[in-house]
Design a protein around this nucleic acid. Sequence first.
DNA 1: GAAGATTGAGTATTCAATCTTC
DNA 2: GAAGATTGAATACTCAATCTTC
Lengths: 166, 166
Amino acid sequence: LDAEQRRTWVRFLAVVELLPCVLDAQLRRDADLSHFEYMVLAMLSEAPDHILRMSALAQRTNSSLPRLSHVVKRLEQRAYVERFPCPEDGRATNARLTETGWVKVVETAPGHVTHVRSHVIDALTAAQVAQLGDIARDILERIDPTGNMAYEPVLRQPEGRERGNA
Amino acid sequence: LDAEQRRTWVRFLAVVELLPCVLDAQLRRDADLSHFEYMVLAMLSEAPDHILRMSALAQRTNSSLPRLSHVVKRLEQRAYVERFPCPEDGRATNARLTETGWVKVVETAPGHVTHVRSHVIDALTAAQVAQLGDIARDILERIDPTGNMAYEPVLRQPEGRERGNA
DNA sequence: GAAGATTGAGTATTCAATCTTC
DNA sequence: GAAGATTGAATACTCAATCTTC
């Protein structure tokens, strides 16, 4: 790493490590939700019928399946989400946003979007937003080639991997 | 958030959430160290006499003091770090990298740098690296709570930007 | 046997409370 | 009383193991 690359990396790392705290703090304070919990509710709220399979939800929230499973259990206890077996595939579980959960998202989203805008988007010019979009895409392609690396154990490397969700 | 801002935000969030796993996985596998533990050792290795006050170390590792305290305790048990009271200020604690810790960093750093390069830096053009450096700086200025967590490069590279150290 | 998901144990992090020194 | 740091309890995450269905 040359001097400029190093400077970029150090700063970028700081953002990567500080940003989750910033997002958590606002949501925790205003909605008693972690950012990850909010993501789960938000992704469900955008899905058809507010239903998503656990594995699809894990991809969309950039999380492992065990982590998601634990968190959904807590959200279920809070009555924001329900789980039921997938009719098409007995192995799969569907998660559905409840009416209560929907209300929660609708209440919470505006404040969160405002926070994201004021703390991240508005710090950048329009050109920088475009640049960051491209940069993030290029990095994602490296660190997450298949779009679903979340649950890839380091131990075993299956050679042909395929998965059928988009 | 308009459509482009939203697309950028979603991708950027994915990077922010996936990158720590990528860094942890390599270091855990190759050096039995979390990325945060590595950062602690690396920051000490760059400090004068390999010594830093706990609060300064917390700033440079983008961490809270309680988190750092717990981790340093574990690193102390592994003999990578020692703590001793700061002579100038009886309230403060200094952390020092041991010889063993130094050896560990020297062994670990090359592989880690290679990993960072191949998974992040090499995904970008030189222009994008420069853009990301500016973007990260601008976001940091917004989200850094106290303004003293932002950590500028260790290598003395006069760049016309300076930051006070409170 | 593999995919989808859950569970429990072990580990790490957060938060509030505490202690000491300035 | 405030700053620097540590501690313990509660919480959350990770990993391997497990269970069921395909």
